[in-house]
Write a protein that binds this DNA or RNA. Structure first.
Lengths: 348, 348
DNA sequence: TAGGTTTGCGTGTACGTACACGCAAGTTTT
DNA sequence: AAAACTTGCGTGTACGTACACGCAAACCTA
């Protein structure tokens, strides 16, 4: 194939040294206007494109990317998945002089977010991946990063009004809307649907609220006449869950939608006759998958957490190292997972 | 941060020259067993990983990758998608001295496959991506490539008994099995299911046959007592389709499964009352999506054709350029697509 | 006008790897 | 035993770019 032109070729043709060409290309100044024009013209003419390999090799800069996510724990298996994606991307970009440092905070403790974010900042990262669980604290962190001109990417959700490089998250309303469709397949004319929100403060977990809103919107658009009940229950009252469910599920109930922690609801309703009930929940955690396999849960909506971690890290890499344009928006697909295809989603 | 170890570091620690380390790493021989072991041991110990950039720069080889897929046409929109994935991957690896050349054949003409494959071979590609539509011809091509030690990757399906580097395709049986589950959600005790195979020769399109087999297997395992009809119709008899469908769909029919060309069936049954019928088909072609949006088709199973093209090209890149181990098996996930999330699948 | 600064350019080394070559010591062939 | 290989290793150059350094000539300052 036709050989690529190098700055040496340019230099030769222009009758100058490669140093001069280098200065022109990088706008380092100290070149006469006449020479500059000439070199640029020849670059154009010979269709010069820099050799990325040689650039990176010569630049020899070691990048540091920091990740900042909730610490995965037994009752919080979900956050292992983004880490898997992060680890995969880390492996792939090994050899490019990029160091990825992982930092964690406690998902139930705003203070740990503040504290650990400082630990992260002192490593002087060149880019940061953030799961902005705590709105206010995450916004403060974003501001600091903006001040220092450090690019950052959000996963899971995003903070409006910040200057993020990109985000990778699912639209909660749309996913609820889709859940509506799935339950709809199974409904009869006079059935009922039960929505379970497992949280103490629905207003502080807007994505759960939006999931429910999406489902109700769908039913409304279908002119569904049956009743849609909501059951909001705090994690503190977990012991009451079983009782509450029995109270709210009866022979007309043909749809069940949990906006989080599907496995807890699944455990409670194990004994209810199942073929009658279309049960849709979220996320492929091991606990949830167990009940999916048992046929208690029918569908799990997946937000591809591993892909989020993977994509976000690669976005930072593309931006920092490869200097490529990165798309600012990355709405994650809403994956429909049933017993028969959940294996497809066990890896990234 | 900790500097990456180079072969120089290895050489220093081992008390040999970098040339020796190079010979060990590349198995060029002419190194005493003792030295070899020592160097390898130190590589392990220092966790040496080659710098891809420097490797590529030094090798200074320009790779050629050829792709060989059906030419996308108006009645064959599907094959645009793999190309999109191929183009995306091509962009990503631009700058690594890799040239991707696309070759096409006519999906209805075995002769064009043979002919174009020769055109492809004369470019002396270093790796090939193949859509093995014609079993016998594809096998011949694979043999030639094997003889010349040119690695190749299959998409869409694979030819058993060949020495492919990797494949990216969906398991047709499993996808039919999954379709069974989806239709099952909608069935009543005494309903019927209709399966439509749109082909002249089911034996020559085994993946369609396997899709149907998967569905039947699922129903069998559920102890489904209702009837499952099969309607095999040749594309030549397309005009009869409408009539045949009316003949085979009646008030008890609550499931409709097309193993291909869903849009043609959809067009024919537009006028049949719909809410009663759960219609599952394959592939997100524009025609199919149109009927998905109109509510005629309920679910499309997607085999991620763009991801297949993308993954296959990257696999070749990883193998040739990055010399990384490539997984031989890449079963594609079976994506469940409904009206409410099809947009998520419009890009890669 | 001596001294300093700026402008404009070339040279040299480094990045990490591949590979051709060379050379001494040991081994086989004639 | 001389000639011809083989084994085991080191050296040197190339890949294309970045960047520090150096050095004239031109320009400015006091």
């Amino acid at each position: 194939m036709k050989k690529k032109v190098s700055i040496r070729d340019i230099a030769e043709r222009a009758g100058v040294s490669i140093g001069t060409v280098d200065r022109v290309i990088h706008n380092r100044g100290r070149v006469s206007e006449k020479t500059r024009k000439k070199v640029l013209h020849i670059c154009e003419e010979m269709n010069y494109e820099p050799n990325v390999l040689a650039q990176r090799l010569a630049a020899d800069k070691a990048y540091i990317i920091a990740t900042f996510t909730p610490k995965p724990r037994r009752d919080n298996a979900y956050w292992r998945f983004p880490l898997e994606g992060i680890n995969k991307a880390t492996e792939e970009i090994a050899g490019y002089r990029v160091t990825v440092k992982q930092f964690f905070f406690d998902i139930n403790d705003e203070e740990s977010f503040r504290h650990e974010s400082l630990n992260m900042l002192v490593t002087q990262p060149d880019g940061v991946l953030i799961a902005p669980i705590f709105h206010r604290e995450a916004r403060d962190l974003a501001r600091k990063l903006d001040l220092n001109n450090i690019p950052y990417v959000f996963i899971d959700s995003r903070i409006e009004g910040t200057n993020y490089l990109s985000y990778f998250a699912q639209d909660p309303f749309r996913s609820g809307y889709l859940a509506g469709r799935l339950i709809w397949f199974h409904l009869k004319k006079h059935s009922e649907v039960l929505v379970v929100n497992f949280t103490a403060d629905l207003e502080n977990h807007l994505h759960l609220k939006q999931r429910e809103a999406g489902l109700r919107q769908f039913m409304k658009e279908q002119n569904y006449k049956g009743h849609i009940r909501s059951l909001n229950i705090s994690p503190r009252d977990e012991l009451l869950l079983s009782h509450k469910l029995y109270e709210n599920i009866h022979h007309k109930t043909r749809g069940l939608f949990t906006t989080s922690s599907a496995h807890k609801v699944a455990r409670s309703i194990r004994k209810i006759r199942k073929k009658e009930l279309m049960f849709v929940g979220y996320d492929l955690t091991p606990d949830n998958v167990k009940y999916l396999n048992q046929g208690i849960i029918d569908v799990l909506l997946c937000q591809k957490p591993a892909a989020q971690g993977y994509g976000a890290l690669r976005a930072l890499f593309d931006h920092l190292v490869r200097r490529k344009e990165v798309s600012k928006e990355h709405p994650m697909p809403i994956e429909i997972v049933v017993k028969e295809n959940y294996e497809d989603y066990s890896d990234i």
